[in-house]
């Protein structure tokens, strides 16, 4: 059975220039991720995880290399097109939640719908469904300040799901949570993956990474290892082999 490749990254290099000094953060990374896969990218601080995430999330461009997202070459796209891709195809979950303070959970989840070229008629219903999906139907009108860390992270997951994106990109999703909330959040990701959603988790926590089917280890801007997680609860056939460089 062949599966579609939702992400194809080839020989990505990212160099930062500061005061005449060049720093190579990513040194030629190639990854292919299948639709519906569950991938974690781990590595120590400074290994280039966050930079890779910004590139995968179309928040920044690589210095060289190609990046195909859902068959679209991202490197060639204008800012407007990148905004559309972020809106339609990627759902972000952040370590620090990044919810708008003073704005209700409902309105925070609504944000991606503001920037759709066409707001769905059933926007309200969709937001409610997403919040019910993460178990926050009773907290819709609460502001982030009135929610616990775990609840806030669930709001961000609901927000990432609202536009039904191809990929969920989570950067240290349990980093600001206690272990109980961390387990709950990871269970939510597991469920989402079971439903067929592509999930990429960036973490330095090996326990978190063990939830994924495939674990990529980054070191010094390169992929040090790419392995299938033997302990993955429900391994599924048909996932792609990985190209590392």
């Amino acid at each position: 059975m062949t599966t579609l490749k939702v992400i194809e990254v080839n020989s990505i290099i990212k160099t930062y220039k500061s005061e005449g000094l060049e720093t190579n953060v990513l040194k030629g990374i190639s990854i292919a991720i299948d639709e519906g896969d569950y991938v974690s990218i781990i590595g120590p601080s400074g290994s280039g995880k966050s930079t890779l995430m910004t590139i995968l999330g179309c928040l920044g461009q690589a210095t060289s290399g190609t990046y195909l997202l859902d068959k679209e070459e991202v490197g060639q796209l204008s800012d407007r097109e990148l905004s559309r891709i972020r809106n339609e195809k990627i759902g972000f979950v952040f370590q620090a939640f990044h919810l708008l303070p003073g704005v209700s959970a409902f309105d925070n989840v609504m944000i991606p719908l503001i920037y759709c070229s066409k707001t769905p008629k059933d926007a309200k219903e969709r937001v409610e469904r997403a919040l019910i999906r993460v178990g926050l139907e009773h907290r819709m009108n609460h502001t982030p300040g009135q929610l616990s860390g775990g609840e806030q992270q669930r709001v961000t997951i609901a927000r990432s799901l609202i536009n039904d994106p191809k990929i969920i990109l989570a950067d240290e999703p349990t980093g600001n949570l206690d272990s109980k909330n961390g387990i709950e959040i990871m269970a939510t990701f597991d469920n989402l993956n079971e439903e067929g959603r592509t999930i990429i988790i960036i973490t330095h926590d090996s326990v978190v990474s063990e939830h994924a089917r495939r674990i990529l280890t980054l070191r010094d801007g390169q992929i040090a290892s790419d392995r299938i997680n033997e302990n993955f609860k429900k391994p599924r056939a048909g996932f792609s082999r990985v190209a590392t460089q």
């Binding site: 905004s83 809106n87 972000f92 708008l100």
Partner: peptide, 16 residues
């Protein structure tokens, strides 16, 4: 700045 970042992440264009 975070708010701007969040909006950009979820599809806001520069013009927005």
């Amino acid at each position: 700045i975070r708010e701007i970042g969040v909006r950009r992440c979820f599809g806001a264009r520069r013009s927005d």
